[in-house]
């Protein structure tokens, strides 16, 4: 376990958190002297930067790396509360700015054996399978609980050459190549704006098709999920907040505990 200055005493350069594959048992970036950013900051390949700098690089890589993929986690994909819905809106706002995007949720963390279906899900216990199958050049995690994000990010760095982005609601992740901390809905909307600005600056046209699922298991073509019209309606709802209401709560009647025909 190094402090940054101790690491520098033994090495010429600070430890860089770069796309792998880095090896079978990789060190946690924190143990190599990488520290979490303070409020308003981010990490750029292990280096502390402002969140604006981190967001610019996230935008540049999302627009230029092959097969960019969004992995919304349980804190976004499930409508737990109003805040989860607000974050889901903002994530759709981000998705609407990135051409050729894939969306593959991490809906939960339970182990998946005998096999995971990598075209439609990513699992924290073997995320490399989904990254490999879909040839992801860059992936974004948002709404994943810290402990499983740490596990996932390390495994991806260990076994794939994918660039990882963690949009973290807490303090950020050392093991992500690019991370921004305190990502509430407002900050996610800010990132959507940065991506739009960078895209226009780079002369990349706005996406016309909806984000797809992963590469189909039979024909190896990206799975079409929405028509452009359907997606346009979803994006419009996300941007305006109209028709994007909290799902109605379902009550559980108390008599559910009574077994039918108890012996």
């Amino acid at each position: 376990m190094y402090l940054k200055k101790e690491y520098l005493y033994e090495h010429d350069q600070p430890y860089k958190v770069m796309p792998g594959p880095e090896g079978y048992v990789i060190p946690a970036a924190a143990s190599m002297g990488v520290t979490l950013p303070d409020a308003g900051g981010g990490l750029l390949y292990g280096e502390l930067v402002t969140e604006d700098v981190a967001m610019e690089e996230i935008a540049r890589r999302l627009l230029t790396d092959p097969n960019p993929t969004l992995h919304p986690g349980p804190l976004v994909i499930w409508a737990w509360n109003e805040h989860a819905i607000e974050k889901a809106r903002a994530v759709i706002g981000i998705a609407a700015e990135i051409p050729d995007l894939m969306i593959i949720p991490m809906a939960d963390y339970r182990p998946r054996y005998p096999k995971v279906d990598p075209e439609e899900m990513i699992n924290p216990n073997h995320p490399n399978l989904t990254i490999w199958h879909n040839k992801e050049g860059i992936c974004v995690f948002v709404g994943v609980h810290c402990h499983y994000a740490n596990l996932t990010l390390k495994m991806i760095r260990a076994g794939t050459n994918c660039c990882t982005v963690a949009l973290c609601a807490e303090q950020g992740h050392e093991d992500a190549m690019l991370t921004v901390r305190d990502c509430d809905a407002a900050k996610l909307w800010k990132l959507a704006g940065v991506i739009k600005r960078v895209r226009e600056k780079m002369g990349i046209p706005a996406p016309t098709a909806a984000p797809t699922g992963g590469f189909g298991p039979v024909d190896h073509k990206k799975i079409v999920v929405h028509t452009p019209e359907e997606w346009a309606r979803i994006v419009e709802s996300a941007r305006t907040g109209k028709n994007f209401a909290m799902a109605k709560a379902v009550g559980v009647p108390p008599e559910l505990g009574r077994p039918e025909g108890a012996i």
């Binding site: 919304p72 976004v76 994909i77 499930w78 409508a79 737990w80 509360n81 989860a84 819905i85 889901a88 809106r89 759709i92 969306i103 949720p105 979803i234 709802s237 996300a238 028709n243 994007f244 209401a245 909290m246 799902a247 709560a249 379902v250 009550g251 559980v252």
Partner: peptide, 11 residues
């Protein structure tokens, strides 16, 4: 509430 088994709109 069983909201945790409802998918967020759009996804």
């Amino acid at each position: 509430s069983l909201d945790y088994v409802k998918v967020s709109p759009g996804f």
